[in-house]
Simulated assay, not measured.
Amino acid sequence: MVDKTKIAQQFIKALPHSAALGMEFISLEDGTAGIAMDYDERFIGDPESKVISGGAVSALLDTCCGAAVLTHPKAPARTATMDLRIDYMRGAEPGQRISAYAEVYHMTRSVAFVRARAFDDDMENPVATATGAFTMEHK
């Protein structure tokens, strides 16, 4: 039996941006993933407000969605983002860790559909939400 957790962890380690952003897994289950990154001044998008850039949040959500696909019971050998829509709800509070949680909610033979949300310490009000479609590349 294939260890999907190991595959997902290898996936995140293989992505240079994941290491650069300091991403780490906080949860992994069948078809779901949680990944977090600490606040880092290198990723500030607005020097005045000190808010983390939308690009860093986008990378976190995209990576988390891909990891959720790889942990699904019908997981592919590989996956890639086909489409990802991100809605930014508010700026993350400066100094706070950002956590993303993704779930596969529908899967066809060739496409996985995923939803995700990113939060700072306020787990009631998302920083951003995402919906995406990911390839299902079977060996």
Score class of each variant (00 low, 15 high):
Thr135Ile: 06
Thr63Gln: 10
Thr81Val: 00
Ile12Phe: 00
Ala133Lys: 10
Asp3Trp: 09
Arg42Val: 04
His138Ile: 09
Tyr105Leu: 08
Gly45Gln: 09
Phe43Lys: 13
Gln96Ala: 13
Ser58Cys: 14
Lys74Met: 14
Ser53Glu: 04
Ala8Thr: 01
Thr63Trp: 01
Glu124Cys: 05
Arg115Leu: 03
Ala8Gln: 07
Gly91Phe: 07
Ala92Ser: 07
Ala128Gly: 07
Met136Phe: 02
Arg42Gln: 10
Ile7Gln: 14
Ala68Asp: 03
Arg117Asn: 13
Thr32Pro: 14
Ala20Trp: 07
Leu70Val: 05
Met37Asp: 02
Ala77Thr: 14
Thr32Asn: 13
Leu84Ala: 07
Ala77Phe: 13
Ala92Asn: 01
Glu103Ala: 12
His17Asp: 07
Ile44Trp: 11
Met136Ser: 06
His17Cys: 11
Pro126Met: 06
His72Pro: 11
Met136Asn: 08
Thr63Val: 02
Met136Trp: 01
Asp122Met: 02
Ala67Glu: 02
Ile35Ala: 05
Tyr39Met: 08
Ala112Lys: 04
Glu29Arg: 12
Gly31Ala: 11
Ala75Glu: 10
Phe119Glu: 00
Arg97Gly: 04
Ala112Tyr: 02
Lys74Phe: 15
Pro47Lys: 15
His138Gly: 08
Gly132His: 01
Phe25His: 03
Asp122Gly: 06
Gly31Val: 07
Leu21Lys: 05
Val104Tyr: 10
Phe11Ala: 10
Lys50Thr: 00
Met107Gly: 12
Arg109Ser: 13
Ala20Tyr: 01
Glu93Trp: 15
Glu103Asp: 12
Asp87Ser: 11
Ser58Pro: 15
Phe134Ala: 04
Val57Gly: 11
Phe25Ala: 06
Arg97Thr: 09
Ile98Gln: 00
Gly54Tyr: 03
Asp46His: 08
Ala8Pro: 05
Met23Leu: 09
Thr135Gln: 08
Val69Gly: 04
Gln96Lys: 14
His106Pro: 05
Met82Ser: 06
Ser58Leu: 10
Met1His: 14
Phe119His: 00
Ala14Ile: 04
Lys74Arg: 15
Thr108Arg: 03
Glu48Lys: 14
Ile12Ser: 00
Ala68Phe: 02
Ile7Lys: 11
Cys64Asn: 06
Pro126Gln: 04
Ile12Pro: 02
Arg97Leu: 07
Ala130Ser: 11
Ala92Phe: 06
